[in-house]
Design a protein around this nucleic acid. Structure first.
Lengths: 223, 223
DNA sequence: ATTAAATTTTACTTATCGACAAATTTTACT
DNA sequence: AGTAAAATTTGTCGATAAGTAAAATTTAAT
């Protein structure tokens, strides 16, 4: 065994290690998503993965390290959806935004639900603890939507931008909580978030825009 | 010892038992409110109350029995606030409703927070599990507010009553969750709920009413 | 003060968690 | 096939939870 051999060996092993890690991590996502964070234990994970508990420790470290890993993945995924285009038209904006999020979640529902649970547990969404200013970033986007809508003449400006912004964020957050903690499915989530956003815009919409928002709301509830 | 003696004895003892129970229950409320449900253990409660764990079992039964007791108390308290008068005017209605709730919570914040945590844990607020139809009852009240506002000419009727009703309930629910889980205090809770309610009404308000709602919102945010 | 019942406590059981070190097995390269 | 490193498991530890039975204490009446 020489130095070269050692490095080659390591690369193969590390590649396999990543595969094993991913396999177990997927099982963890499913377990958390279906049973909840409180019921999630390392022994349960080891059992379902067909390995022993120390193997989990070897691959991931502490239990909270698993949570941190889920959160890191979530952050990356969210940065993707944050950089989507934007519409000034409230109806278009609300529909596009709600649809973007839902289609993202649909891709891997287990993962997103598990990651949000982990994020809540670790306090990532607390304004105080959030280093990346996650909440702030979301609100910034909502604010840009409002400003654009105002600029393009869809809103009147009678309701303060900060109020509109805050309410846009709130309705989105409530829907997410309900979905993550299994009160509603993604269809209901879409309905709830879209209705909330349309309502917020409707508080300050021009008569013409308000008519379209009301029509969209009616259509949404008649399905 | 005769039958009469026994009954007299029992009445005194039972009265004391109730006093002890209440003392310990108050400690439990404070513990749950300040540390959260997950951190709440019977041994911690026994320690703070200066008794042993079996005493807790003797007085209350299982851990979940304590939760059930908190929930039962909450139900009674909520029935009180449910039977308050009602205003057709959205501004009055929102302010009165928000104020009523906040002043109720202020009376015994520890208890209400603990009881809501217990209620969430035991699934009382899930529409499916809720036998008393708690959620349904709350929504009914919101609905009556909307109908009254519509009848008295404050609303236009362009947005469906069911939508208005649902959104009124949602903004209230979100604020409550944030308060219970210690993200915000009761002042912020009041602000959040009131702003949410005013916004919902604003989606369908007549021009005159909308102007007053906007004014109220502005005032709320300039404090 | 005595006494009998109610209450509390001591001591224990059962179960589960996360975590770790040492020994064993597996793996991948030569 | 042999070998050395990497990975896994066995075995174990320490902590803490809920809950129970029986002994000891307290209580409130006589």
């Amino acid at each position: 065994m020489n130095a070269k051999g050692k490095s080659l060996e390591n690369s193969t092993r590390q590649a396999n290690k990543i595969l094993r890690r991913n396999r177990i991590l997927n099982i963890a996502k499913h377990l958390i998503a279906s049973e909840g964070l409180e019921a999630f234990t390392l022994s349960q994970l080891a059992d379902k993965a067909g390995v022993s508990v120390p193997t989990i420790h070897n691959l991931f470290g502490k239990k909270s390290d698993i949570y941190q890993e889920l959160i890191a993945e979530l952050v990356i995924a969210l940065q993707g959806v944050m950089s989507k285009p934007m519409f000034g038209d409230p109806v278009e904006s609300a529909k596009f935004f709600a649809q973007s999020i839902v289609s993202m979640y649909t891709d891997n529902e287990d993962f997103y639900r598990a990651a949000y649970m982990a994020g809540n547990q670790e306090g990532i969404f607390d304004d105080r603890k959030s280093k990346d200013g996650f909440v702030q970033q979301s609100i910034k986007i909502a604010e840009r939507c409002c400003v654009a809508a105002l600029k393009e003449g869809f809103l009147l400006g009678n309701i303060g931008t900060s109020t509109l912004t805050r309410q846009l964020y709130q309705c989105h957050r409530l829907g997410r909580q309900d979905w993550v903690y299994a009160h509603i499915d993604l269809n209901e989530y879409y309905h709830q978030v879209l209705e909330g956003m349309l309502m917020v815009y409707a508080t300050d919409a021009t008569p013409e825009c308000h008519k379209r928002l009301a029509k969209e709301l009616k259509r949404l509830n008649s399905q």
